[in-house]
């Protein structure tokens, strides 16, 4: 890496420019499976945040002790430990949510975003930067989960975080709660995200062109 990014840049890139879902298209399995309500999205986001920050911290601290040949196995052991801790904690504290999320909490271990951050970032940077990067990536992931879960709960249930917004006469869009609704909404959100990014690029190009003319 040419220069060390500032912590702010490092955080914000995970949220937007390198958003794990909308730009890198990682972690699709929990993204599509558990986002039928905003609450489920939030719990999944928090669990992922906990796992990613914990593993990034450990991997960055221990990076000189981890032999390269077995690093992937060691990363997975570290991630799996944090996932198990998250799994039991949710089961004890929020049994109803755990029932809904079901197998997808243990499956956080298979979220390639988490292993990807260890390999691509935490193992090559200092502890502070690794934690900031993990926080940014998890925040970006949670932002995407909440965007998807919010839309799906709003249309599929007429509520947000369980609070009814449309009154009793609301006709629920059943498909939004079901897997096809997840796919359709995710596709439309990707479209929206790319459209905004394209608009921004076009705008910047125009600004640059005007500046050249001025010179």
């Amino acid at each position: 890496m040419a220069r060390e990014q500032s912590s702010y840049e490092s955080f914000i890139k995970g949220l937007w420019r390198e958003n794990p879902v909308f730009v890198q298209v990682l972690g699709m399995c929990p993204m599509l499976a558990v986002t039928n309500t905003a609450l489920n999205s939030l719990v999944m986001g928090l669990a992922t945040l906990f796992v990613l920050m914990g593993s990034s911290f450990l991997v960055a601290s221990l990076k000189h002790l981890i032999p390269k040949q077995v690093r992937i196995s060691l990363y997975i052991i570290i991630i799996a430990t944090f996932v198990t801790i998250a799994d039991y904690t949710i089961l004890a504290l929020l049994p109803a949510v755990h029932k809904e999320l079901g197998a997808f909490i243990p499956l956080i271990v298979a979220n390639c975003m988490i292993l990807g951050r260890q390999e691509a970032f935490a193992s090559r940077h200092g502890v502070r930067m690794a934690v900031v990067d993990a926080a940014g990536m998890s925040a970006g992931f949670m932002f995407a989960l909440l965007a998807l879960g919010g839309v799906r709960e709003l249309l599929g249930n007429g509520s947000l975080f369980g609070v009814d917004l449309f009154g009793p006469g609301f006709e629920p869009w059943v498909i939004m709660i079901l897997p096809p609704g997840g796919f359709i909404t995710l596709g439309l959100l990707l479209l929206l995200f790319n459209w905004i990014a394209a608009r921004k690029r076009a705008f910047l190009a125009e600004v640059a062109a005007t500046e050249r003319e001025m010179l």
């Binding site: 006709e171 869009w173 059943v174 498909i175 939004m176 079901l178 609704g181 359709i184």
Partner: peptide, 10 residues
């Protein structure tokens, strides 16, 4: 197909 999945009763 979208309508049938979305509003199955209607």
């Amino acid at each position: 197909a979208f309508l049938l999945g979305t509003f199955p009763i209607a």
